[in-house]
Design a protein around this nucleic acid. Structure first.
Lengths: 197, 197
DNA sequence: ATAATTTTCGACCGCGAGTCGAAAAAGTAT
DNA sequence: ATACTTTTTCGACTCGCGGTCGAAAATTAT
């Protein structure tokens, strides 16, 4: 009851590392079990399939990301900064740099897409709350906050996927956020620094 | 020099059909060659790999889509309708219904993503032209048309991916288009009918 | 100690992508 | 027609990989 969970966690961490460094498609179950020093059967005692492992690995990393996001939401900062802060907290930072690189390999489209879908599913409710707060404070003069937030999340995710985005893209994106949420023009201007720094 | 091209086209069409009906991941090269009645070696005489086949299949279907889109752009209709018409022309219609279903299978994430990327790459330049025209006519009072159009394309693609979208989503999306492009409120209202009918 | 349960093992299976050397077909030159 | 070149076809074969299975070892319960 205890040993088992530890083993599984160990496997998840190994898989996590390998998926990120070598890519999902380039990591074989044999690779994982060799690294872990266990037999094939043991692996499949803990996981239904390789894909399910990926699923759990992603959930794991998103747990960590969501933690960060929640901190931002609860922080004592202006609503606009929360909104942006949460989005930014899901940007790949230095420690996760390999993610971005590996993610653009063809072999990793699956991983990429899975992360994206799960991320949106988690982020939207969280940000909707923030959006509602902003609306209550009169910052965003519109209805249908969840739908609008969803659009913003989708865009942020897609636009800043790779490391190649121009200043114009950033500028327009900020404008778009303001426009979608009917916020005061310029109220999101500070994003620029966040995305560049 | 002639026979070869015909063969390749035949293979592409078979692959196209099978990828759509059974999904990319569930279609083996053996399936394709059996259907075509040829040997493995012959297949690999025409294609480097299965993935390259997919690539070419997608290009093929997007050629057809782009054709339709160009018609819309050149048509004698209001700019706003062109914008929306092009986006709508890339929606899966009845004849391509299997696409949508197959696309949401896990096995097809690769196909899905590849289509999406290529589609965006093709659609954005086309629509940017339309956008610039609209700007010239004073319909859209903003700069950076290409970036804005790109956001719209990304959103349309993501939002109406599956067959499950609510009226609110449509309503908000229309509003978003107008807001992103600084168009007159309500000028895109006719989209509603397009997406529902 | 014994039985029941959990965990581990690794040989084995089958599928599917891609290779290769050689044969057949088609085309060209003499 | 013939010989030579090029294009196209063939299918047996390899190899890697995901996943299975029955049985052994380790743990826990009674």
């Amino acid at each position: 009851m205890k040993k088992g969970e530890k083993r599984k966690l160990e496997l998840l961490q190994i898989a996590y590392r390998m998926f990120l460094s070598k890519g999902y498609g380039n990591t074989s179950v044999d690779d994982i079990i060799e690294e872990a020093g266990i037999a094939k059967g043991t692996y499949y005692y803990y996981f239904e399939s390789k894909e399910q492992t990926l699923e759990e690995v992603i959930d794991m990393m998103l747990d960590a990301e969501e933690e960060k996001a929640r901190m931002v939401v609860q922080a004592d900062i202006p609503i606009e900064q929360k909104l942006v802060g949460v989005i930014a907290s899901f940007r790949p930072d230095a420690s996760e740099a390999p993610i971005t690189e590996a993610l653009h390999d063809t072999e990793n489209l699956i991983m990429h897409e899975k992360i994206r879908n799960k991320l949106i599913a988690r982020l939207v409710p969280l940000l909707s709350e923030v959006g509602e707060q902003g609306k209550a404070q009169g910052l965003f003069e519109c209805s249908d906050i969840p739908e609008r937030v969803r659009e913003i999340v989708i865009l942020s995710n897609e636009l800043f996927d790779g490391p190649q985005y121009t200043e114009t893209e950033i500028k327009v994106f900020i404008d778009t956020i303001e426009r979608i949420l009917y916020a005061k023009p310029g109220s999101m201007g500070f994003i620029t620094q966040l995305l560049q720094g």
